[in-house]
Amino acid sequence: MSAVTGQPRTRLAVAPWQALRRSGLGPGLLMLLVVVSLNIALQPDFFSGSSLSGNIATFAPTILICVAQAVIVLSRELDLSLGAGVSLINCVMASLPQDKLGGPLGVIAVAVLVALLLGAVNGLLVAYAGLPSLVATFATGAIWFGLALTIMPQPGGVISDAIGDGYAGTLLGIPVPLLIIAVAMACWALLARHRAGRRIIAVGSNPEAAAVAGIPLRRTKLLAYLVAWMLVCLGAIAISAQTMSGDPRLGQSYTLASVAAVVIGGVSLGGGRGTPWGALIGALVLGLVTNVIYFAGISSSWQEFVKGFVIVAALGFMVLEGRRRA
């Protein structure tokens, strides 16, 4: 409808439930409620400190990568190379000499540079060369995967203990993974309130109108890719800190999971609608469903089916919700 739905612009006169409905977060939140209740039922110590922080450490990479996809989807594009990019960043990190380059900070700096490069390539191909993002990022995904395999044909290498310990530790009493997610989301919240973020949403919502309004389409889409790949980089570092080694196939499953999380979170694939918060909720739902399957002792042959069913159920919710909104 209006150009920038999803952002609480008219917060004065809107009842909370109406704002919720407009945000498209309703179905995702409902699903989150269901899976959290199931988790609590199956795992009585779900809310204990150690269990919570363990869960957050496990979910953090997924959350960051799903939020990254949401930023790109908001600009009405897509990135099917996120998973392969995670693998490539992970392999680069694990193949670096961990004690040189100024220690872990040097390794992280290299990871950031690689992520920016990958995001820039995708952004340039999509925004400046005008290639359809779906196929173009699928192609670059194949290239990232090929590069990861070149660097590391077999899983191996090491990530320095400093990164692993740092990720498992706490800062000011807050677990580091939680801190990373909080900082990432705070950065998005800040961005969304300023020109750059508004432009991303405006371009995704209605490119023609945005162009007429004088928003530089190409630069804005490139920016969306760069912001997203910074989040992907954080996700790749987080998962590297957990696995402590390199694996060229590490990220594969994240690509499609990120698209699913975006949909569950009510971010419209048509662009401009929804918020990265939705993707965060979607990622949590996916992660907690895996938890439920694990703790309920569901045999592995059911797992795929249950996961697929959850996504289809989410789609059903979204459709019903969309009908009512329309």
């Binding site: 290639l131 670059t140 194949a142 090929g146």
Partner: peptide, 17 residues
Amino acid sequence: GEAGRQIIFGLVLLGFL
């Protein structure tokens, strides 16, 4: 190897696009 094939595959696709 698979690595090279993937890279060439991606480049060919980009070229056609």
